[in-house]
Nucleic acid binder design. Structure first.
Lengths: 196, 196
DNA sequence: TTAAACTTACTAAACAGTAAGTAAGGTAGC
DNA sequence: GCTACCTTACTTACTGTTTAGTAAGTTTAA
């Protein structure tokens, strides 16, 4: 593996673990067996390194979400939820980076990134609207639905260790795969917003 | 208002906004119109200041959650969810601090705090178990339910500005009170885990 | 006069970023 | 086929800033 790839690999893990501000380039350099100046040889600054990791994942999520079309809002919502799970599973760092940004109010999101996130959210809105229009969904605030979908998926990844620590005091098994969680969420959300 | 209270007031906001590591005591001092050394006069170190803010809120949440007992798991679950909403509404900084800790895997949680969080989680487990035992709840992983309850409530607070930024690109109204969200979540969760 | 409630002025470490240098390999000109 | 000169891919050693934390001194009120 060449040095640039090595830097990106280590940096992804670091940003996932500590968030943008918490990451030290010195530390990345040490773990990647290069000097800090080598990072600056490949990337203009800390933010360019960050964006190089983050942007492609957002774009892949958009592609995944928009890759499926159906007249059935239930199928569409299911695909929307599983798109997140699929990309989060493929890039575990991605959901953790998003988690850090969300609690930080997107401090390091450029306007470009905000627009891409809006595009993702727009898809959910159109799914919900069609469902309401077809009379099969209850009227629900899309922001609430988005929060109910994305935050458990994200938190599932980022609270892994915390759950492990808590389970020392409680007799309970740690849950398994993010796709299982996505299935659960998908079923529960559908059950929750379907009209009876 | 005396200086200690002023420091605590400012510090709460700062920890909520930036998380433990992101907070600068120099900055708190400036905003509270004291010197940094004044903070060290009242608090042994940064962590003691943090714990002074965090611990009482956790304890109040425990009290609130355990203040209600019923044989009806539906009522109990509803109370469990609204306990979070009540305390989060009373201390908006609390949910944001929790959010930062959760994405940080509880890096600044002492064993003491972990035990208290376990106690909270235990209540949910016993509610779910009773519901399952009475045959009215589906068998669901309590961690998933906890995530579905707490993460949207927390994220609702911490993504406020982010949602505002996104709504520039999307024609949608920002949702209102956290208690409305709690109501929505409570209804949806119940609908989701109730056996039909 | 003494204790509480601070302030001033510092230290040491960590941080993003940079300037200047260098080793290795390729290329151009003769 | 050999020298001169680039370019790529870095490293060394630094700057300036921000940080948690401290030691020693000062003011104020009982």
């Amino acid at each position: 593996m060449n040095k640039k790839e090595e830097i990106l690999k280590i940096a992804s893990k670091e940003f996932a673990k500590y968030g943008y501000k918490g990451v030290s380039l010195e530390n990345i350099a040490k773990k990647a067996n290069v000097t800090k100046a080598a990072i600056y040889y490949y990337f203009k600054n800390k933010f360019e390194l960050y964006e190089t990791i983050l942007l492609p994942k957002i774009e892949e999520l958009i592609d995944e979400i928009y890759s499926f079309n159906s007249d059935n809002p239930i199928e569409e919502l299911n695909h929307y939820i599983h798109s997140y799970a699929k990309i989060f599973k493929k890039y575990p760092c991605f959901s953790s980076i998003l988690a850090h940004e969300f609690v930080d109010n997107g401090r390091n999101f450029t306007e470009n990134i905000i627009q891409k996130l809006s595009k993702i959210f727009n898809k959910l809105i159109s799914i919900l609207n069609r469902g309401i229009h077809q009379g099969i969904f209850e009227i629900t605030n899309p922001f609430s639905v988005q929060l109910m979908i994305v935050s458990p998926l994200i938190m599932h990844q980022s609270t892994k260790n915390l759950r492990k620590r808590i389970s020392k005091y409680i007799d309970i098994k740690i849950d398994s795969d993010i796709e299982d969680i996505a299935n659960t969420i998908s079923k529960k959300i559908l059950k929750a917003i379907l009209k009876e």
